[in-house]
Simulated assay, not measured.
Amino acid sequence: GTKFDFSVPFTIPENVKPSIVYEMNEEVEVEGQKFTVKDVTIHPLRIGVRISFDSKNTMKVLQFEDMRLEDQNGEVWGSIMNGISSRGEDENGDYVYFLQSNYFETPEELFLRINKMQAVDKENAFLVIDTEKGSLINTPKDDILEMVHSSRDGFELTLKTPLEEEFNFGLGAGLTDANGKKVDVASEGMGFKEDNIRSWTVDINDDGYINPVKMELFAYPNYINGDVKIELKK
């Protein structure tokens, strides 16, 4: 039961490999949706792909399921892990998507490849839920998302997808009330039922929030497909 402190001395070598930046500024279009790949930065531990979306797009792109870097032989050099990419938003409002890096191999040529993207109409890119009435007010219009039950302490929805389709994402990102105040989400989870029905539960710490609540979609099984191939040049 005695507590003690200890230290492990180490030094960071001065010859840490620098990041490699490929300036791109390539605009592409997939099923009418435009976006610009601004740059690709290859760090020793990961790859960052910075993308901006055209404000005139009718759809919101949620996830790039197969974004990857390929070498001149078509072999994957850097890719998303398990079909799920992490992403962040920079100070310019651009999104940065992170891939696994293969930094210490140097192919003769590299290409950014994108084929499959999750996207929904902008007006349906969020959920609106009245937790007291148990009503799902706004949702994508494909009838695969249904309310099971709800209360001020949370809600459960089911999502039905085709049996052959993999979907390993949570649906939402952030919850706000009718006044735009952040609602405290205690936990969120995705489980499986029969017939490829997924159960999505959100537990809420009720701090007096005002209904209805709104949640931006983080992912959703609606897809657009293209064949993006951009060469990386220093």
Rank of each mutant, 00 (worst) to 15 (best):
Q63C: 11
K17T: 08
D39V: 08
G191D: 14
V128P: 07
P107E: 00
A186F: 15
D90A: 01
E91N: 11
S101H: 04
M24P: 06
L232I: 08
Q33R: 00
K193Y: 14
K3R: 10
P18A: 04
F167N: 06
I47T: 01
V37N: 04
L110I: 01
V16P: 06
S85M: 12
P44T: 01
N57K: 00
K38D: 12
G74T: 04
F4R: 13
F192W: 14
E109G: 04
E188Q: 15
M215N: 04
I51N: 00
S187T: 01
E231M: 12
L159E: 02
F53P: 05
N25G: 11
P140V: 09
F53C: 07
S199N: 05
R152G: 06
Q63R: 11
T131E: 05
K214V: 08
V37M: 09
L145N: 07
G189C: 09
D207G: 15
T158S: 13
L175N: 00
V8S: 07
V28T: 03
V76G: 02
P221I: 11
Q100E: 14
K122Q: 09
P13Q: 13
L217R: 04
G88W: 08
F35V: 00
V202A: 07
D90P: 04
L62A: 01
P44K: 02
L136K: 06
M215S: 04
N92I: 06
I144R: 11
V148D: 14
P18L: 01
V30K: 10
L232Y: 09
I114D: 03
K122L: 13
N82E: 14
D54R: 11
L127Q: 07
M215W: 11
S79V: 13
S151P: 08
E27V: 03
R46P: 02
F111T: 07
A186C: 08
K160F: 07
N179C: 07
V28H: 10
D142C: 05
F10V: 07
E89M: 14
V185T: 10
V49R: 03
R152C: 02
I144E: 03
P221R: 08
P221Q: 13
T158C: 07
N102K: 00
V183I: 03
T201Y: 15
L163H: 05
K34S: 12
M59Y: 10
Y95A: 08
E132R: 11
A125P: 00
M24F: 06
R46F: 15
P107S: 02
G226T: 02
F126I: 00
Y95I: 02
P107H: 02
E23K: 15
R50T: 14
E31S: 14
S199E: 07
P221S: 10
V30G: 08
S135A: 13
E165R: 01
E166V: 06
K234I: 00
Y22H: 14
F167S: 08
V37A: 06
Y220I: 02
N196W: 15
A178N: 13
D54S: 13
Y95T: 05
D203M: 15
D143T: 09
N211L: 08
A119Y: 06
V148P: 03
E132T: 09
E89V: 11
F111Q: 07
Y220E: 05
N115K: 15
L163C: 04
N92E: 12
N205T: 12
L62Y: 04
D153N: 03
T131H: 05
T201F: 15
I137F: 11
S85C: 10
S52C: 06
K181E: 12
Y97H: 12
F4M: 11
